[in-house]
Amino acid sequence: MKNKQPTINDVARLAGVSKATVSAVLNDTGTVRKSTRERVLAVIESLNYRKSGPDTRGGAQQVRSLGLVIKEIDNPYYGEVVTGARAAAEEAGYTLLVMSSEGAHASERRAVELAQAKGVDGLIITPVLDHTADLSHLFELKRRNLPFVLLEEVLGVQASLVDVDNESASRKAVEFLISQGHASLVHFAGPEYSMHSQERIDGVRRACSASHIIFGDDGVVRAGAHAEDGYRAGLEFFRSRPAAERPTAVTCYNDLVALGLCRSLDELGIRVPDEVSVVGFDDIHLLDYLPLRLTSVRVPKFQMGQVAAQMLIRHIESRETLPPQRLYLDTELVVRDSTRALPGSPAASIVRVGAGTNSGAARMAAR
């Protein structure tokens, strides 16, 4: 039998205040002295108390729920994350509510506020991050002691995290291309609202700096997160370049950008991989059913959603406040038909599709 969760009466009793005062602190209303507010917040944290959701009518049992805020509703990557989170939620008796910010700060904030208004027990968030990001809604979640797990690190916010080492994964993909004899490379970067975009650029730079290759700012092509972004950027970048000035390999922010790039190259009469090798990132299921099977960095997307939901539920159901956890899942490079070794280069030995993999492994990082 699960331990009884603390109530607002428990908070009021231990803090030596009225229920109305506790409510005023939780809702940030009324005039409460700073010392009293701090005492109430300290008790809330010590009890791991969370405000109950809206009451149900007719005496029906309240439905337990988790919220998941993604960034792109049309990205198959998130479909696999959602499937994993839903499986874990339903196994534990929770309903999963999914919302998308579409890369907009205001939309993310509204989604988080709506989830709170609907009384969700906790949130999984893929945050919108750039130099203009307003993170006050995340600090508000912490103030209300509503548990949340991030799928992308937010500097300055102490919260649980499930992610992959994007920099290392990107670096290994470029090291593979270098081992295949490619010395002229560019990277089609992702949107500025994702820290993952910069981390993957950093991985490319690290791989090149450890080799004989000079990789400057002109090696980064700003694309985006969608297939049309890769298509547009590909046409713009390759259309006016003679064959002698083209890169022999391109790494991409994600698979959608890579697929858009491949279409633009096909329209320009540039053959993949004979003239240009292309590497994606994420390894979405769709890749197995395309005429040109894309080399990609495999991210364990189902496991990411599943583990994040399980981690969140542990925070929700704990009688004590749990410290933030950070879990980094392993990635692997899956080599398919969109890359080739240049003549004269040593053939790299890389695990191919169908061979044994270890993408389910994980490593914990304590902070």
Rank of each mutant, 00 (worst) to 15 (best):
K2I: 12
N3M: 10
K4V: 06
Q5L: 12
Q5M: 10
T7L: 11
N9A: 14
A12C: 11
S18A: 06
K19R: 15
V22I: 04
S23Y: 01
V25D: 01
S35H: 07
I44Q: 06
L47F: 15
N48S: 08
G58L: 13
A60T: 12
I70H: 05
I73N: 12
Y77L: 15
Y77E: 04
G79D: 05
V82D: 07
A85M: 03
A87S: 13
A89R: 11
A92S: 10
Y94A: 04
L96D: 08
S101W: 08
A104F: 14
A106I: 09
E108W: 11
A111Q: 03
Q116V: 02
Q116M: 14
A117R: 14
K118P: 00
I124V: 09
I124L: 13
I125H: 11
T126H: 15
P127N: 13
P127V: 11
D130I: 14
H131A: 15
L141A: 04
K142L: 05
R144P: 00
P147L: 04
V149Y: 03
A159F: 04
L161D: 07
L161N: 06
L161V: 11
D163G: 12
V164I: 15
D165M: 13
N166P: 10
S168T: 15
R171K: 12
E175M: 02
L177I: 00
Q180C: 15
G181V: 07
S184H: 14
F188N: 05
G190N: 10
P191H: 07
P191L: 12
E192M: 08
M195G: 15
G203N: 07
R206A: 15
A207M: 05
C208N: 10
C208A: 14
S209K: 14
A210Q: 13
I213C: 12
I213Y: 07
D217V: 01
V220N: 07
V221E: 11
G224V: 10
A227M: 15
G234V: 12
A243Y: 00
T251V: 06
C252M: 06
V257A: 09
L259S: 07
G260Y: 10
G260Q: 08
R263P: 07
D266R: 15
L268G: 09
G269M: 04
P273G: 10
V278Q: 03
D282S: 05
D283V: 00
I284C: 04
L286C: 00
L287N: 11
D288S: 09
T295G: 03
S296Q: 02
M304D: 02
R314W: 01
H315Y: 02
H315C: 04
S318W: 10
E320N: 07
L327E: 05
Y328A: 11
Y328L: 15
L333E: 01
S338L: 03
S338V: 08
T339M: 04
T339E: 00
L342V: 10
P343Q: 13
P346H: 13
G356P: 00
T357H: 02
G360R: 00
A362Q: 03
